[in-house]
Computed example of a mutant assay.
Amino acid sequence: MATVDLNLVRVLGALLDERHLTRAGKRLGLTQSATSHALGRLRRLFGDPLFVRTSRGLDPTARAQELAEPVREAMRALDRCFRAEEPFVAASAARSFSVAAADYGSFVLAPKLLERLEREAPNVDLWLRPVDASFAEQLARGDADVAVAPARSDELPAGIRSRPLYRERFVCLVRKGHPLVKKGIDLASWTSMRHVLIAPRGAPGGVVDEALAQLGKRRRVALAVPHFLLAPHVVAGSDLVVTVGARVAEAFAEILPVRVVDPPVKLPGFEVRMYWHERHHRDPAQQWFRDAVREAAG
């Protein structure tokens, strides 16, 4: 049965409905000869006449009557399978989407993303989840619709797509009135200060340490924290300094007694990208959501 021509299902369905060879053919866009040939193939396939000629047209045999409902269900299934994909209507959608991101990414994206959901998709919910180092596996498992993370230097795993969201630069955050920071920070003051290191994976080192090493310098990391959003609060109540993405620093400078200053050495910025699984690439709902994430990041 694996080699059965699916067109035969359509022919059998039309014959069961029309009970007439010519009318069934016209319904399917077939000539009477082609319809008759298909009926012959069906008879050989099932080992049964299926229909007998009468003065009224074609009467189904007992075997054809047994097949009537399964054939109609098969037709409905084929129609669902090959029907054109319906567009995603955000205004009437009732579902949820999920984003895997560090607290930094969630902080940047969530407010504007929620604004768009409230405006365009009031019944759509948003779930923010922690992002794993192996976020490709999260996406493959379906634990998140998209992941937001810094650009990878290695090749993406098979089945994972990505696009850039934004570029970020590093700045320093210190409390207002810090005794070592006037208009800015010089290198000697910076290296003498106690630093906060944001280490989401718990590993030492980072871009600051690499830049200082090139100058033959080191810094003291007095506090390491796993979360980006904790560091500004620590800095606001101490003489520590943290080097962090400008978006986070500038946002906290508006609500905490902290200042944003440029680091005394040139630090490379970084690109944040959105990642998703190939199976969601053409899904209209997922396309709409990815566009919403992209807009929120802009």
Rank of each mutant, 00 (worst) to 15 (best):
A140K: 11
A140E: 15
A140W: 00
R141L: 15
G142Y: 10
V146N: 07
A147F: 03
V148T: 05
A149D: 00
P150K: 05
R152Q: 05
R152V: 03
A158W: 11
G159W: 11
G159L: 07
I160V: 08
I160C: 01
I160R: 02
R161C: 02
R161D: 00
S162F: 03
R163V: 03
R163D: 08
P164A: 10
Y166F: 15
R167T: 15
E168G: 04
R169G: 13
F170T: 11
F170H: 13
V171I: 09
V171R: 05
C172L: 12
L173D: 07
G177N: 00
G177M: 01
G177Y: 03
G177C: 05
P179T: 06
L180T: 03
K182T: 07
K183Y: 09
G184F: 01
I185A: 06
I185D: 01
L187D: 00
L187V: 01
L187T: 04
L187Y: 01
S189E: 01
T191N: 01
S192C: 02
M193S: 12
M193H: 03
R194K: 08
R194T: 12
L197G: 13
I198W: 03
A199N: 09
A199Y: 06
P200A: 05
P200S: 04
V207I: 11
V207N: 04
V208W: 03
V208C: 04
D209K: 07
E210M: 11
E210L: 06
A211M: 04
A211R: 11
A211S: 10
L212I: 07
L212Q: 09
Q214P: 00
Q214E: 12
L215Y: 05
G216C: 07
G216R: 04
K217A: 12
K217Y: 03
R219P: 00
R219T: 10
R219K: 14
R220V: 08
R220F: 02
R220M: 10
V221W: 02
A222K: 06
A222I: 04
L223Q: 13
L223C: 12
V225C: 02
V225K: 03
P226F: 02
F228C: 10
L230S: 14
A231S: 14
A231D: 09
P232I: 14
P232C: 13
P232T: 14
P232L: 13
H233Y: 07
V234Y: 10
V234H: 14
V234I: 15
V235Q: 09
G237E: 14
G237H: 04
D239P: 04
D239Y: 11
L240R: 01
L240Q: 04
V241D: 10
V242S: 13
T243C: 14
T243E: 05
V244H: 06
V244G: 01
A246C: 12
R247I: 13
A249H: 08
E250R: 15
E250I: 07
F252K: 09
F252R: 08
E254R: 15
E254V: 12
I255S: 13
L256E: 03
R259P: 02
R259M: 11
R259H: 05
V260N: 09
D262M: 08
P263L: 11
